[in-house]
Simulated assay, not measured.
Amino acid sequence: MLTINQLGCDYPQHPLSFTLSVTAGERVVILGPSGAGKSTLLNLIAGFIPASQGEVWIADQNVTALAPAKRPLSILFQENNLFTHLTVKQNLALGLSPAMRLSAVQQEKLLALADRTGLLPLMDRLPAQLSGGQRQRVALTRCLLREQPLLLLDEPFSALDPALRQEMLVLTQALCRENHLTLMMVSHQLADARFLADRCIVIDQGEMAWSGTWQQLEKGDIEAARMLGVTPANDP
């Protein structure tokens, strides 16, 4: 689904260079210290930061030169970027049509997914009338309505309380499975990796320092685990 080859850009602290592959339907959580380059990696994949070297391939298509809007992906940040003057329904409609003029089929699709994500009672509200968890549900639903095969999440739930955060993780996992999405999520929360990830990637100083399952991280690689503040089971 996703392949990046020596992808990098100019970075104030240190050079960045990433090479990795993610298979279709895989869920990957990206971990690492602050300033390591985790968010920069997602922005390079999405095209918001121009690459100074390397390539990005998504679904067998070289998208390196494409504008962000032309790439077959959706991205959600901690700041959900909802339009404050539009209702929930209008914000969702933007996921299907920039003009918000929907066909009957699109209307049905919007309402079905809004029902699945618990948004039907909120459709006429403005973002300011929603809780933080509700706003993130709107933003996530809008991403899913775009029906892109790759979903990038950059610390989207970090501002939520623990109960809401868990609710959003459960919803994200379910929707990725149901829609056969490939997921890459940046997080500082090790619990996210335990719950969500098929694979963990640890980034440090602009490079991939480690890749494997959460169980391998917890029980195997002492250096990578210590980097994240985890005590490996085999650490003397």
Rank of each mutant, 00 (worst) to 15 (best):
T40R: 02
F83G: 06
E79G: 09
E207M: 11
V186N: 07
T19R: 12
H180T: 05
R125D: 10
Q148L: 05
Q6E: 15
H180K: 15
V105A: 11
L126H: 05
D235L: 14
F83D: 02
Q173D: 09
L2N: 02
Q13R: 09
E167S: 12
F18M: 08
N62M: 10
T213W: 05
D192K: 01
Q136V: 10
A191S: 09
C176M: 12
T40S: 11
P149V: 08
A114K: 06
A24W: 10
A51T: 03
L73W: 04
P121K: 10
N62V: 09
D154P: 08
Q216N: 07
I45A: 00
L86N: 09
V22E: 02
S211G: 11
H180M: 12
Q129K: 06
I30E: 00
L44M: 13
D221E: 13
M184S: 13
E26L: 04
R177M: 08
A114V: 05
T231F: 13
Q106W: 15
V170T: 14
P121L: 03
L196E: 02
A209L: 14
R137H: 01
V22K: 03
L41D: 04
G229D: 13
F83V: 15
D221L: 08
M123Q: 13
D115H: 13
P15K: 02
S34L: 03
L7D: 04
L126Y: 15
P98F: 04
G35L: 03
Q107T: 09
A46P: 04
R101H: 13
E147S: 11
L130G: 14
A69F: 14
D204Q: 15
F195K: 03
L183T: 00
E155G: 08
T141D: 09
T141Q: 01
R165M: 02
Q6N: 10
G95E: 04
G37Q: 02
L73A: 01
N179V: 06
N80A: 05
R142I: 05
L183N: 00
S187C: 11
D161L: 03
R226M: 15
T117L: 07
L183S: 02
A51K: 02
H85C: 12
Q215H: 08
T172V: 11
L145G: 07
I49G: 01
K109F: 11
F195I: 10
R116M: 06
T213K: 05
